[in-house]
Amino acid sequence: MRLVLLRALVVVILAVFSGLAVNSGQIFALLHKVPVQAAEDYAPIPVELPFVRTWQQEGKLLVDARAFDNYSAGHIAGAYSVPIGDQQRLQALVDCCVRRTEVLVYCSSISCSDAFTMGEQLFVSGFKRVYLYDAGFTEWQQQQPWVTGSQRQLDNTVKEGGER
């Protein structure tokens, strides 16, 4: 009986090693998967200029949801450009920064909804907390027109001399 148990144990160990070795990629991917959040749970936190100023000075994650042309013309220093509908840039941002869990998004002004929409996409992609700067770049520019900053790139598709 002892030999029977020992042999059964050998088979089990062999099966465990085979299974884990063959499927290690899938198990590893599952371990590092960012949990998907439901869009219904999306509740962005509206913020005002002083908060944005502190956020920017601390070098935290800032996302500009406007079209890239507008971003090129001027943006909050340190912000990444992720225009609505640009899935490549969105994925690049998620890949690089989702572990930072918090993001602040803005667009042109209170009349634009791109920041809200972009915030929702970032939330569903795994960002835990999304801050919305409703007044947007218009207010920012009025308050401190000298700060626009250099461009930040998320991938190599943007050629116009930004920093990484």
């Binding site: 089990v12 099966a15 465990v16 299974g19 884990l20």
Partner: peptide, 14 residues
């Protein structure tokens, strides 16, 4: 996932 990865091999070897 771990069970799904290992159980088929236990079945095959058995």
């Amino acid at each position: 996932m771990v069970l799904a990865s290992t159980l088929p091999y236990a079945e095959i070897y058995t």
